[in-house]
Nucleic acid binder design. Structure first.
Lengths: 347, 347
DNA sequence: ATTAGCACTCCTCTCTACGGAGTGCTAAGA
DNA sequence: TCTTAGCACTCCGTAGAGAGGAGTGCTAAT
């Protein structure tokens, strides 16, 4: 990719255009570039370079007599081979840390808070994907008899995530009996991932058919039901949507509607975040690169977060392709690490 | 209020204007009224009536040569003393019932689903306020030792609402010990509202000071911690925000921003819904009537929902003041009753 | 009390004109 | 061969003028 932009000067022009465009939001012309950035060449020369960059598909001209705008590809090249990502200043880190008020009362709350932090520091929308249950480690299961034939299962993972399911059972079961089940299961399933738990349960059920142990049988059946669903589901917390309204490129209502529709549907955003979960470190999707979402010129900057050694989910920032990547990339990176640390402490 | 609009004809004109405005969205003039509604009078007469209604503050003229638009007060009069609220047709009821897919796997899910139902049937935004914990009836408490000194408390209410808190404790406590605590508490607190639970705990703590029972002491202390916060907090589920974008009156970006800001902040909306919780039946806030929210010309139609005899929360529809009240009022009413029934069955 | 007629107001849409920004090209200079 | 000054050209955005239309309020007649 780096080879696409041969000369040092071309690279500097591309950078200058992108910086200017990011801060200004309007097509940038040759004169402004020559003046403001110390390129020491005339506008005419810059125009020649620009024409070359346009031919390479890195720049784009909205109309004949307008300045240039970087294309998604242009931004990609810039991010991959020009931008030097700096660390967040320690003052910024401090400010981020402080903006988490109070302790970790609930994991949910922590995630939502994180999403808010991302949004307020990036001035864009912050997003956090909740942990996939199947990836978490089993800690505890409880059954609660809500009333005749109605049972609630509560599942707690090591990272402190709580999940409950209500379902109907055939015959009524007393709370004492349910407590026996859960004691039994809690012993058996310690330290397995929920994925493994599921397998283990199936396994035990086969054995049990031979043993005819009624206690086991019921316990296994109930826990199966609880695990049947939702193991692969994730939710997302999106905060700061309205920050996007401040970006002039989203001023027209049609564009807006598309973005907010995507926010409302969520499933596509979840898919995208999901995809970036396995890839370690900061991921960047620029505009059309995330084709499935027809959100127009929107970029995602994401990073997975962990608890201990387990990848739990993904967090990130959603903003216009015209975003201050140099600030937001380290922000997302640091926030992911910070959240991982906090989840590690809570666990 | 009824006296404001003296004549029968004036009332009919007001009604006609509102109906026309609701369906069309543009100021309505005297000619269109005379033609379309069987008023059997000439436009000139209608103009006279309109002038009267305007003087009363029920109508409003955007500019000299425009037709009339009902004011918030006009809509209020219409809703209170002209509109006859019909029942939802049984076909509609059936369709609503069917749109709840599957059973009640989780209360949360059920509430979110309800919010979606409200939004899709109203073509506006649907909103559901989650139950205030303090109003719910205690069912069960569990303690889970996450790791040294870290304990999670899980609280289950009779209606199937689960709430968890993670906190740090001074000395480490084994899971076995924690189980003892919860067994003790579960016996003690059965069938109290969480509000009462809190009082009861304080009570017991006083007694315990005399008895010096270490088990009691610890158990009480932990549960106190868990209940310390969040009892009064509510969340809301808002679905179908983008439906509001289809309303022409929200076409301009500034108006939009205000509404979405309110959605983002939530706390003010929660306050409003909270207020309408105690008042039974369907509540309506028209535009400026809910002053605290500067959402512009937005109306709320809300109704509390229950589980058994307890009021749990509020649900409703948010839309432009220009909304089809005759359809949406019974929709909200029915949905609230349906949700109450479903929660009653699950509990 | 109602209504036909009419002058008047104000909005909205379209068309045109014009200044400005930025380009590409050409030809001259280093 | 690369750079640059100069220039004609293109296209956007805005402002202003004018026409058409919808709707009103008033007056006078029924």
């Amino acid at each position: 990719m780096k080879q696409l932009v041969r000369g040092e000067r071309a690279r500097r022009v591309l950078e200058a255009i992108i910086l200017e465009y990011i801060s200004g939001g309007v097509p940038v012309g040759s004169r402004a570039l020559a003046k403001r950035y110390g390129l020491n060449v005339s506008p005419a020369t810059i125009r020649n370079v620009m024409a070359d960059l346009e031919e390479l598909g890195l720049l784009y001209q909205p109309h004949t007599s307008a300045g240039r705008i970087p294309t998604d590809l242009g931004l990609r090249v810039y991010i991959d081979s020009i931008l030097k990502i700096k660390q967040l200043s320690s003052a910024d880190r401090e400010r981020i840390r402080r903006s988490y008020k109070g302790g970790v009362a609930r994991v949910e709350g922590l995630l939502k808070e994180t999403s808010k932090v991302l949004s307020s520091f990036s001035k864009q929308a912050g997003v956090v994907l909740t942990p996939r249950l199947s990836l978490t480690v089993f800690k505890r299961i409880e059954f609660v008899r809500l009333r005749a034939k109605m049972v609630m299962t509560i599942l707690v993972s090591q990272a402190g995530i709580v999940h409950n399911t209500i379902f109907e059972i055939d015959g009524d079961i007393s709370q004492e009996e349910l407590d026996k089940y859960s004691r039994y299961l809690n012993d058996m399933l310690q330290d397995l991932t929920l994925h493994q738990v599921k397998a283990r349960l199936l396994d035990e059920m086969k054995k049990e058919k031979v043993l005819f142990d009624r206690l086991l049988s019921k316990a296994l059946e109930l826990s199966q039901k609880a695990l049947q669903e939702n193991l692969e589901d994730s939710e997302i917390y999106i905060e700061g949507r309205t920050n996007l309204l401040d970006n002039p490129e989203f001023a027209d209502v049609e564009q807006m509607r598309r973005i907010f529709n995507a926010f409302e549907e969520k499933s596509k955003i979840i898919d995208l975040l999901d995809k970036s979960m396995s890839a370690g470190g900061v991921n960047i999707f620029i505009g059309s690169e995330s084709e499935l979402l027809d959100m127009g010129s929107v970029s995602f900057i994401t990073s997975p977060y962990t608890s201990g050694d387990d990848i739990l989910g993904t967090l990130g920032v959603i903003g216009p392709t015209r975003m201050d990547y140099s600030r937001i990339i380290p922000l997302v990176d640091y926030t992911a690490k910070l959240l991982s640390k906090m989840l590690g402490e809570a666990l």
